[in-house]
Amino acid sequence: MSTNAATYVPDDADRRLIKATQVGLPLCRQPYHALAEALGLEPPDVQARLRRMLANGVIRRIGAVPNHYALGFRANGMSVWDVPDDAVADVGSRIGALDFVSHGYCRPRHPPEWPYNLYAMVHGRDRGEVEKKIETIARLLGPRDRGHKVLYSTHILKKTGLRLVD
């Protein structure tokens, strides 16, 4: 359902590299050299593997992963929307282009109690800020908004990085 392209098949060295870096890079002047040394690989090989995984979309990006809560964005609203199926791709792309939406997905409905098929995660410093952003989305959808609500998070019960390789 959600396959973008062919799956990348990592070899043993890739898997070890993924395992070593999914919690973060070594924070030193030559992080890729440090990784190479730790994994028994050559630095150019480590760099080539990372470049290949970037090009293939296995790595979405390399950089800072902010913690919204720690940055003061304490209101986290998962907005869910019931939009016509034939409009979801179009409005989904437009909502994804809004700079306050951090994730946007089309997901299956579970009728009758769960008619929602479009999800947009909205962060704000408080609920008032989130509500304003939700209004912006509602205006953008217009009559294609057949119903929506916002589910605020009250507690983080578990948060770990996605463990890809055990």
């Binding site: 799956t7 973060g24 924070l27 990006r61 800072a64």
Partner: peptide
């Protein structure tokens, strides 16, 4: 970057992997 990670301002600094592209 070290300090931002230590203070939890950043969850981490490094690659963000896409599990589904790895067959997950």
């Amino acid at each position: 970057v070290k300090r931002l990670c230590d203070h939890g301002t950043l969850s981490r600094f490094g690659p963000l992997y896409n599990a589904e592209r790895l067959g997950g």
